[in-house]
Design a protein around this nucleic acid. Structure first.
Length: 742
DNA sequence: GACGGCTGTCATTGA
DNA sequence: AATCAATGACAGCCG
């Protein structure tokens, strides 16, 4: 238990120090007060401040998690904690909204918006670039859009300007490069798994404050005006590729009192092969996959997403999707007509074409023939409010028409963005332990933070061959050095012990032996140039503490100054050698101890006692011998201890570097996740737009997005409902999550 | 001579 | 109980 306590205590301390070094705030109290009573008890134990850190023991056993039986999974625990902290730390970057503006794309050179936005070249795609500059509330919209996007960027943690305290220049550069890069999103996205997305969404959720719901009311015109699509990667704007002419929609909006009817030919293909480079069915699959992946807890704070998500890049089809996602391709739109569609809409089942038209209902359920599939994907009832487009004003359609070859392109409205917010929120909810463990597994492999410092001795031992050769004097010491070196690397800190050295040394040394100790001392010194380069301060260490060394060792390892040799008198040389002797050696000589100090110190207990028994020694001699042995061992222990301290510092240094690398990597991943998410949103937007645009009433006219909206009901059906009703439900859905949070 | 760094030593603790 | 390793604290030495 004590070792466990020590491990935890010092491990937490080191961990905290590391995190603080890289700017991560750590609240230890939360750990102590968390649901870890054993941990707390261990850490706050009465003797924690006085316990020892068995670094050598840990070092010997931590490899492969083969640590003390009581300490099992401590590494996992710390790893998980560390990773979570890293991930959370990414969110703490504060990015001023005004700075975020630099990330927004302004698309139209003729637009007034572009003139007001800084041209940082950080071309984050944003719907703000698609604003209709003619809109009366354009300014408000712009700010909203940027606000919404800024949230993404804030939580991204990567867009902080250099003035932001938490972001290093390295981070800024990294993000800058990432944003500037024209990365192939398709290739990158496929590797993004659900857990990663959820992680990002979990982060996003913190930044969403549902206070924006009301702001988008009546702003549908701008949404409709967003008929340019922005490339998800480059930020380029281009006309949305939609097959039909949007201009007819505004003319054919049925009155709300008139029950809308969806014809069974609603499901005619929305897109032709040439006009739509992406498969609508595939997009539905994508959407459903996303929905299914998420434990959908949804609130309807959708407006920010509405403007967050730029019109999609329909060309981008490389999204990571659950391959096993059940896709319902048999969606029928009961009671609705889809005029003018000559071909089957492949998304929906042909069987719906035979469905009768029911014209008396104000709700136009788009019931999938396999409702369970939809249920599985859109699952919860709180989805209902997310496909309610906000009220649109019809003027937006006018602006949409010319720029979109697709007649439905102009219908890109807030409703789509509602869906996006739905996705957003659903994703946010789901950062579960599974993903945490996945993260742990992922980062465990390459994380530099570990209390196991075993790599340090091994790395040091690699340099010992050269270092020891320069300082060793005798063949015995050389062999001792090599043998000790191997034990040093293999045994970790325990390798500091010198039992293996003593056997050879016994024969080779005179009465004043400290050579094995000296060889160890050399090993423990950073005499390797590479080591010294890492420790420049050690290069200046020129102490001559060899007074306790054997003369033979001194001759070669540290020859006396030339002046002394010139004098050459035996007396002076004897004085010099005397000066090199340690106090204990002097004492031993004075007491006529019949064997070397080296033997006294390094012999195993049995041999030592045997040696003592061979001689008739006085009490004073015995006492001195014991003192010499004690001091000698303690001296080595002190050297080992100091060496360990130094190793610990160096390892911490390395760990900090590793953590910084991890941090940068996580930041990169976060950028990519957000980008992927944005593209998903765009996709959903496009899908909604296309499906809605294909709907026709009994007169063959399209429904007005300002009056109707698609809604996914709790039972999995898709309904076309009046927008007023949709708004009511949306508001209801807004309250539920808020109440729950209370 | 002050100072910082290194080293040895002592006392203590825990294994 | 003896032994040993580890470590904080202190002192001495050296540059």
């Amino acid at each position: 238990m004590l070792s466990l306590k020590k491990y935890l205590t010092e491990g937490l301390l080191q961990f905290t120090i590391l995190l603080s070094l890289i700017g991560v705030r750590v609240d230890v109290d939360t750990y102590l007060t968390s649901q870890l009573p054993p941990l707390r008890e261990i850490i706050l134990g009465p003797s924690s401040a006085y316990t020892q850190t068995q670094f050598h023991n840990l070092r010997n056993t931590l490899d492969g998690y083969g640590i003390h039986p009581k300490s099992i999974d401590l590494d996992n625990y710390f790893t998980a904690r560390r990773l979570l902290s890293q991930v959370r730390a990414l969110d703490r970057f504060q990015v001023p909204t005004t700075e975020v503006n630099a990330w927004l794309v302004h698309r139209d050179p003729e637009g007034s918006v572009s003139g007001t936005q800084p041209s940082s070249g950080l071309t984050l795609e944003s719907s703000s670039g698609l604003q209709d500059v003619t809109g009366p509330d354009n300014g408000v919209r712009e700010s909203e859009t940027e606000q919404g996007f800024s949230e993404d960027l804030e939580d991204l943690g990567a867009v902080a300007p250099p003035v932001s305290g938490d972001l290093t220049k390295e981070d800024i550069d990294l993000i800058d490069i990432l944003w500037r890069q024209d990365i192939d999103l398709g290739a990158g996205r496929e590797v993004f798994d659900y857990s990663q997305r959820q992680k990002e969404q979990d982060v996003d959720k913190e930044l969403q404050d549902g206070g924006e719901q009301d702001t988008w009311a009546g702003e549908g015109a701008e949404a409709l005006a967003r008929n340019l699509l922005v490339d998800g990667e480059t930020g380029e704007s281009f006309p949305a590729q939609f097959p039909a002419d949007i201009s007819s929609i505004t003319e054919a909006v049925p009155s709300e009192s008139e029950p809308p009817v969806l014809q069974n030919n609603l499901l005619s293909p929305l897109l032709t092969g040439t006009e739509s480079p992406f498969d609508l069915e595939q997009q539905w699959q994508d959407l459903m996959s996303i929905m299914e992946m998420q434990a959908m807890e949804v609130n309807t704070s959708a407006s920010e997403i509405l403007y967050n998500a730029p019109p999609g890049d329909p060309l981008s089809t490389n999204y990571s999707l659950a391959p096993n996602t059940p896709i319902n391709q048999n969606v029928s739109l009961h009671q609705a007509s889809l005029g003018g569609c000559s071909q089957d809409f492949s998304l929906f089942s042909p069987e719906v074409e035979s469905l009768p038209v029911a014209g008396s209902s104000t709700l136009l359920p788009l019931v999938p023939s396999n409702s369970t599939s939809l249920n599985s994907t859109f699952g919860s009832t709180n989805l209902a409010g997310f496909f309610f487009p906000p009220q649109l004003n019809g003027t937006a359609n006018d602006t949409a028409g010319p720029e979109l070859p697709d007649p439905l392109g102009g219908l890109l409205d807030e409703a789509m963005l509602d869906e996006i917010s739905l996705m957003d929120l659903a994703i946010e909810e789901g950062f579960n332990p599974v993903q945490a463990s996945q993260l742990e597994e992922e980062f465990d492999s390459d994380s530099g933070l570990s209390l196991d410092s075993s790599h340090s001795p091994s790395s040091l031992s690699s340099s010992e061959g050269s270092s020891s050769s320069s300082s060793s004097s005798s063949s015995s010491s050389s062999s001792a050095s090599s043998s000790a070196s191997s034990s040093f690397s293999e045994e970790g800190a325990v390798g500091y012990s010198s039992d293996s050295e003593t056997l050879d040394l016994e024969e080779a040394e005179g009465a004043v032996g400290y050579q094995p100790e000296y060889s160890k001392f050399c090993r423990m010194s950073y005499q390797d140039p590479s080591q010294l380069s890492c420790l420049p301060y050690l290069e200046h260490v020129g102490h001559n503490h060899t007074y306790n060394m054997a003369p033979s060792a001194l001759d070669s390892a540290d020859p006396p100054p030339p002046s002394a040799l010139k004098k050459g008198s035996k007396e002076k040389q004897a004085d010099f050698l005397d000066k090199q002797m340690s106090r204990d050696e002097h004492r031993a000589r004075a007491m006529k101890i019949p064997f070397t100090n080296d033997k006294i110190i390094n012999l195993p207990v049995e041999e030592f006692n045997e040696l003592l028994s061979k001689y008739q020694l006085s009490e004073a001699q015995l006492s001195l011998i014991r003192d010499i042995r004690r001091r000698g061992k303690n001296k080595m222990a002190a050297q080992n201890c100091r060496k360990r301290k130094l190793d610990t510092i160096l390892n911490l240094e390395r760990d900090v570097e590793d953590l910084q690398r991890d941090k940068a990597r996580l930041l990169r991943e976060k950028v990519e996740f957000l980008r992927s998410l944005r593209q998903m949103k765009q996709k959903v937007q496009s899908l909604y737009q296309e499906v809605f645009g294909r709907l026709r009433d009994e007169n063959g006219r399209p429904y007005s997005p300002s009056q109707y909206a698609l809604q996914y009901a709790g039972d999995g059906s898709v309904l076309l409902i009046p927008r007023t009703m949709a708004d009511q439900q949306a508001r209801r859905q807004e309250r539920k999550p808020k109440d729950r949070r209370k």
